[in-house]
Design a protein around this nucleic acid. Sequence first.
DNA 1: GCGACAG
DNA 2: ATCTTGTCGC
Length: 219
Amino acid sequence: MKWPATIAEAKRLQEEMVGRVRLTPLTCRPLTIGGVDAAYGNGQTVAAAVVYDYPTLTLREEAVAALPTTFPYVPGYLSFREGPAILAAITRLSALPDLFIVDGQGIAHPRGIGIATFLGVLLDRPTIGSAKSLLVGTYDEPPAERGSRTPLFYRGQAVGAVLRTRQGVRPLFVSPGHLVTIDEAADIVLDCCTRYRLPEPQREADRLVGTRKRDFSPL
DNA sequence: GCGACAG
DNA sequence: ATCTTGTCGC
């Protein structure tokens, strides 16, 4: 694909792609779940893509890729900063997982197309946005117990769930990316959280980009 | 015009 | 995200 070089171009692409988003229920229970994340350093964007069996949560495969950082971080346009490297990492997987958990927002976005949604439409695969902090919307703080959730509203619409994945920790902002519903997204993310706040695939992808950067940083 | 603002 | 040591709390 051709990546936008300016915010104006990126915005046009988002407005064009949002029409292809489908928040339909999963057609079948996922047997594999992927996780993706990115990190930066020395002008490079390092991305990782991992695959876990589900629901056993056994690590199945990992891949990493690095590309020059070309797009700035601008709230609402994360797809264009991290997307190229993440797709490069995904391309290195022997097989695509049935669903991806993406570090960032899904439809809980100013134009309804956060990075999870963007990747889902591009790959034509179910994706879930799992963000560690809020981008847009309002919500009530969910109870402190694991599994508690409250709706995330934006422009009068429920666009996601604020989910407590572990007792007492800060909640995750979960929203559908593509081809999943809000409830399915929250249920799956919770299922993938065993010992930590982040779902296992997302946590492993995060850990992987960190180690990859360490081993290749020019010292 | 004034804030808010994923990673 | 990244820059950064010790420190508070379970």
